[in-house]
């Protein structure tokens, strides 16, 4: 059984079809990249998968059960987490608090009014472990709002990972970072390959072809091709619609 299945999703804003009969099956453990030119509807597709938007028609299944009409928090509890293209952290919280809150979401009730959450060692330990793995272990007590852009991107990933997902939706995780920092980031994702299913939206083609098991190409809300990186690279339709354009520019 596929981990995440999209059946014939459609979504329009007025006359504009942003998602046009999209069907896709993401297999357990794979990194499935979705690429496409700007305005192809990648971010709105992620928003439908994570529940911020509801499709007009079609069905989304996670491990075989229908999640199309579940709220975003309910989907997180089923094991579906996301990162945002535009960094979305809690700026007034420390790095540790940001991640500890994500751990808290999956460990016990949060309708507890008296105990000091800052002193809950299990939460802090789990958060530290995730932060160590994302190279933020030495920035625990810095306010998230004061981080550099690259650190922001890693915190964004750390928060999503801390919810302990089985499927991770990554919306342009490398946006705005480059060089050695981007390479390190790619390494961190690669280290989780196989354990975690990922849907990756990314503009950096080097990263996509280095990471992805399979690639789907989205153009004007439709998937025009799905295949291995090699198949996609050599697909004439893809080259015409997208890659060619990229090379020309």
């Amino acid at each position: 059984m596929s981990r995440l299945t999209l059946h014939d999703l459609c979504l329009s804003f007025g006359a504009l079809k942003v998602t046009d009969h999209v069907s896709l099956a993401v297999e357990p453990g794979e990194i499935h990249a979705i690429i496409g030119p700007n305005g192809a509807g990648k971010t709105t597709l992620i928003a439908q998968l994570s529940g911020q938007l509801t499709p007009d028609s079609g069905r989304i299944e996670l491990d075989g059960s229908d999640i199309t009409h579940l709220s975003p928090p309910a989907r997180v509890h089923r094991g579906l987490a996301r990162s945002f293209q535009i960094t979305s952290v809690l700026p007034g919280f420390s790095v540790l608090e940001n991640v500890a809150l994500a751990v808290q979401a999956r460990s016990g009730s949060s309708f507890r009014f008296f105990g000091r959450v800052a002193e809950e060692q299990p939460l802090n330990d789990a958060a530290r472990a995730v932060l160590d793995a994302t190279d933020l272990g030495d920035r625990l007590h810095v306010l998230a709002g004061a981080l550099s852009h690259g650190e922001h991107r890693r915190l964004e990933l750390a928060i999503a990972l801390a919810t302990d997902p089985s499927v991770l939706l990554l919306d342009e995780p490398l946006a705005g970072i480059g060089g050695a920092e981007a390479e390190r980031f790619v390494e961190q994702l690669r280290a989780r390959k196989g354990q975690l299913t990922m849907v990756l939206i990314e503009h950096d083609m080097d990263a996509v072809f280095a990471l992805a098991d399979r690639v789907s190409v989205l153009v004007y809300g439709r998937i025009i091709a799905t295949g291995t990186p090699d198949q996609i690279r050599s697909d004439p339709a893809v080259r015409a619609a997208y890659l060619g354009q990229e090379e020309a520019s």
Binding site: Q52, P73, A74, A102, A105, S110, I159, T163
Partner: peptide, 9 residues
């Protein structure tokens, strides 16, 4: 938005 995305309603 972030709070929803980590699983709180």
């Amino acid at each position: 938005t972030r709070i929803e995305a980590i699983g709180f309603a």
